[in-house]
């Protein structure tokens, strides 16, 4: 890889980053005035690494995800995916880049096509990107459903016929259909029951190990992020207030805001 972008943080130039946000700012204009949702954020995900972003509602963490995915343009700063500035890429080239990054959303039902079967939902990205034949796409979809723990016997059922946890598994299978290098998960377990959340977390952890995925994992749930992330960034009011290896950050948080967040957690066991 030919990484030539300037270093943002000391030591960072040695990192083989799949995606890198450099001094990114996003301002939304509303009737009530401008809102600086993301304010001078620099963040990168190294290959094979999982980076967690935690923060409360309105902290800007979902906006960061959307900027990194190129779903929204930055107001200033830039996002570089595998050495290429997303703002300078368009059309066909952008589509090629896009299939290398995929996203899993909070509400699986809202993100699946309701009138497509489970298999058809997983096949759709392959069809859009002209992968394989109809038959091979279906075989691959069934394989992926099996991989994420959806019984292939149910491949022809529609999203409403599945539970929330199963729907999220289908959404994950779809995200994996194009063999992305970067998987961005925005609160993927927040709408699920505790027992189902545990299943999905195990699945994501397992996929990270097996597929060597690079992952950006966004959640308001500190425990979930601690479990999956190698490195964690804490966001508050659009800024990253603290960033570091997960273990270190959770054991000795430095920033008062991180300390306050961790202090508010209510333990289940004594």
């Amino acid at each position: 890889m030919t990484e030539t972008t300037p270093a943002v943080t000391p030591g960072e130039e040695t990192v083989d980053a799949i995606v890198r946000a450099e001094n990114v700012t996003k301002v939304f204009s509303t009737r009530a005035g401008d809102v600086r949702a993301v304010d001078d954020v620099s963040l990168w995900v190294a290959r094979g690494e999982t980076v967690g972003v935690v923060g409360e509602s309105g902290s800007g963490k979902s906006t960061v995800a959307r900027l990194l995915m190129g779903l929204q343009p930055c107001t200033s700063g830039r996002v570089v995916f595998d050495g290429r500035d997303l703002a300078s890429v368009q059309g066909r080239e952008l589509r090629v880049l896009r299939r290398r990054m995929q996203m899993v959303f909070q509400n699986p039902f809202g993100s699946l096509l309701p009138h497509y079967s489970a298999a058809a939902n997983v096949m759709e990205p392959m069809r859009l990107h002209g992968r394989g034949t109809k038959e091979s796409r279906r075989d691959r979809a069934v394989e992926l459903l099996d991989l994420v723990g959806v019984n292939p016997r149910f491949a022809d059922l529609y999203p409403t016929q599945f539970s929330g946890g199963q729907q999220q598994r289908i959404a994950i299978a779809r995200a994996l259909a194009l063999e992305p290098e970067l998987l961005v998960c925005d609160e993927p377990t927040s709408s699920l029951d505790v027992s189902i959340q545990a299943q999905i977390l195990s699945l994501i952890g397992d996929l990270q190990d097996r597929l060597g995925l690079s992952c950006l994992f966004i959640s308001h749930n500190l425990a979930v992020v601690e479990r999956l992330a190698d490195r964690v960034a804490v966001m508050s009011e659009g800024r990253i207030v603290e960033e570091g290896p997960a273990e270190q950050l959770f054991e000795s948080p430095q920033h008062p805001y991180t300390q306050r967040l961790l202090g508010a957690v209510l333990p289940v066991t004594s």
Binding site: Q166, V194, I196, S202, E226, R227, V268
Partner: peptide, 23 residues
């Protein structure tokens, strides 16, 4: 099973023990 499924800060090293299946 509910306890085995719950994730806790500081519990990174405790393996998750999800309940299989759904309600």
């Amino acid at each position: 099973g509910l306890l085995g499924s719950s994730v806790e800060v500081g519990g990174r090293d405790r393996p998750l023990a999800p309940i299989p299946g759904s309600p």
